[in-house]
């Protein structure tokens, strides 16, 4: 149905994921655009993370094919793929004993590889990533001494240094407080716009997703429920469909954007 067409970076066809008899992802056919931010929403266990892990090749689909940049996903070489696609797992490792700059520099691995030299272009990319994320101020501090928000920005810096066309972010804000959630999402938004990078991000908070994403993909029990611009989602029926919770929508007092809320059970 969705063939590879202009404007699509990642195209899935009949992608299924099965782990020891459990179907985590029902046959899924869809495409991700090559720019802008796509938010993945859904309940716990809806298959958001699974989908992201499939896109990032952390997990091979049981059935179906994915094409990326016109080539089957499987046929990409490890480093070639990493130059195009960067992935941030839900739980970032501790990175004990690494300085911020050192961690960000690891993002250059796909470019210099196991044996290549760390050239001046690599250094420039690292500096640029540090500046873009405003992490340059603590570039010489140890990563494990940073706060959660700072650390998340450092990881984003590493992904930026990777210079990829597509960022896959698995719940990058779930462990942060509101201020830092906004900060990180604003950063992602800015990067996407300035550098023309496509982003696929898993977000739990529907209002944040609606505010920061260009498109939203909703999954439920491993099945695609909806895919479209945020305003299509912000209806009571849609939200109830996605979350199985009685929800309502009201306009934001300042901006007029739709805000979702949970209704009391006995309406």
């Amino acid at each position: 149905m969705i063939a590879e067409s202009e404007g699509h970076v990642m195209a899935l066809e009949g992608v299924t994921v099965e782990v020891s008899g459990n179907i985590l992802l029902e046959p899924l056919t869809m495409a991700f655009p090559d720019s802008g931010i796509v938010g993945l929403v859904g309940q716990n266990g809806s298959g958001k993370s699974t989908l992201l892990r499939v896109l990032s090749r952390q997990l091979a689909p049981t059935h179906g094919t994915i094409r990326f940049g016109g080539k089957p996903l499987k046929s990409w070489g490890e480093r070639d793929f990493a130059r195009k696609v960067a992935y941030l797992p839900q739980h970032t490792p501790l990175a004990a004993g690494l300085k911020v700059r050192e961690l960000v520099a690891l993002g250059r691995y796909p470019w210099h590889g196991a044996l290549g030299l760390f050239r001046s272009v690599d250094r420039e990319k690292v500096d640029e990533a540090l500046t873009l994320t405003s992490t340059d101020v603590f570039a010489d501090r140890l990563v494990d001494t940073l706060s959660g928000g700072e650390r998340q920005r450092v990881w984003l810096a590493m992904l930026i240094a990777q210079d990829a066309r597509l960022l896959l972010l698995d719940e990058p804000i779930s462990a942060l407080d509101v201020a830092h959630q906004l900060e990180v999402l604003a950063l992602v938004r800015r990067l996407s716009q300035d550098k023309g990078i496509a982003v696929v991000v898993v977000i739990h908070e529907i209002n944040l997703a609606a505010r920061f994403c260009d498109e939203i993909v909703a999954l439920k029990s491993g099945r695609l429920v909806a895919h479209g611009p945020p305003d299509e989602f912000m209806t009571a029926r849609r939200l109830e469909e996605i979350y199985d919770v009685n929800m309502g929508v009201f306009p934001h007092p300042d901006t007029g954007e739709s805000i979702a809320f949970v209704r009391t059970r006995d309406r």
Binding site: R53, S56, R57, Q58, E78, R79, D80, F81, A82, R83, V85, A86, Y87, L88, P89, T92, P93, A95, A96, E102, L106, G107, Y109, P110, H112, G113, A114, L115, Q162
Partner: peptide, 21 residues
């Protein structure tokens, strides 16, 4: 020859894979 791998691998499997190792 393996120092680059030794730098990336402590970040864990998923991260190392994402970086093209």
């Amino acid at each position: 020859l393996a120092v680059r791998w030794l730098a990336v691998l402590p970040l864990g499997g998923p991260q190392a894979r994402a970086l093209g190792v």
